[in-house]
Design a protein around this nucleic acid. Sequence first.
DNA 1: CAATATCTGGAGGAATTTCCTCCACTTGTT
DNA 2: AACAAGTGGAGGAAATTCCTCCAGATATTG
Lengths: 212, 212
Amino acid sequence: MAEAQGLRADARRNRELIVAAARELFLEQGVDVALEEVARRAGVGIGTLYRRFPDRDALLHAVGEQTLTRLAGLAEAAWAEEPDAWHALRRFLRGCAELRLGELSSKLDPHLHQPLRAGDDLRELRQRSIDLLLRMTERAQADGHLRPDIGPGDLALLMTLHVHTPPGLPAGEAVARVTEIVLDGLRAGPGATPLPGTALSGDDLVRHTQSG
Amino acid sequence: MAEAQGLRADARRNRELIVAAARELFLEQGVDVALEEVARRAGVGIGTLYRRFPDRDALLHAVGEQTLTRLAGLAEAAWAEEPDAWHALRRFLRGCAELRLGELSSKLDPHLHQPLRAGDDLRELRQRSIDLLLRMTERAQADGHLRPDIGPGDLALLMTLHVHTPPGLPAGEAVARVTEIVLDGLRAGPGATPLPGTALSGDDLVRHTQSG
DNA sequence: CAATATCTGGAGGAATTTCCTCCACTTGTT
DNA sequence: AACAAGTGGAGGAAATTCCTCCAGATATTG
């Protein structure tokens, strides 16, 4: 949110309304929504939107930044406040589901790829979450709570799992149930089926998890 | 594929090329791709596409039909050829992942909703898969292989789980690993965490799983 | 191997959508 | 109260997308 410094109070408020509206609409309709619609949903004029975000990319970037910031906060809170690594991991994955990280990243990622300006601040933001995820994984496996045949890359895939809830069902509950099933599948245990292929490493992860 | 009867051989071939191209492009870029692009990918002229599919809906419908046909075939093969209900369920869910059912239905569903002409043949096609899924669920739970606190509706959510594989990773393998983790989470066992909320019923399922 | 019914490609004009600037007016700040 | 900062949305340019039409190519049949 560095860009929001030095703005007049009303301008800052509007900027946030725009980002929030963009996030919603990107989720609902994809990143190609007309920017005019974003402005309408945010309750501001189209001129205001263009002043703050010169082009679509700037808006995508802002949404990515907001989400990655939340993600990093989530990871940090989980690591700091939970009694052990496994519980931290649970909380983290549940939080990812709540953030709808999967839907968002599947929509944002492809568009952030090309114009990934080097030295992007998104990089650093992402790295904070990844570092913690690595730590949680190692530790939970060492503790014997997490099945040993997975890697952090696998967890990244699960972070961005996208539960397609048909309209009409209580989305939150559906997602929560699926998340718990997955968590049960992640637990170390005698009954665990060996996974095919090889564990996805942290490097795979770093190279690919783009936005959030 | 009833619509394909009575076409000249080359026309039928082209029709299938178009549906295949549409399926690919819908997955890659969403259902809003320019129809001209579909024609290009299929290697036919735009006129040909319009002759066979008067509007976008017809094409969506055809893709849905193709996918649901495959899905029903998958369910039937699984039920008929596997030694027990649990193995049938495994095979079925793995097949769904392979079909990329989740991505497709999350893209197709919203557009099939409004113009869901009553008495649609998609309905019947869908029903066949659902019936078998119900049977598999009941039976696998009775056999003590599937955790008892889930319903067929939950399985439907898992059928359409969308693994967002970042470009560059071997998609097939990633999906396979996630699928196995989920299957482990579905197994009945002493360690299973109780799920929040209530099991999603078969009715929830029937009412909402639209296309494929 | 004709003859003909069927099918094909893509040029191109109409219609729609989206973009984005510009400036008269409003609002926050000091 | 004064001014810097911010606002909205009309509207023209540009880009997309749609979809028809027909001269020519291709399968099929006897």
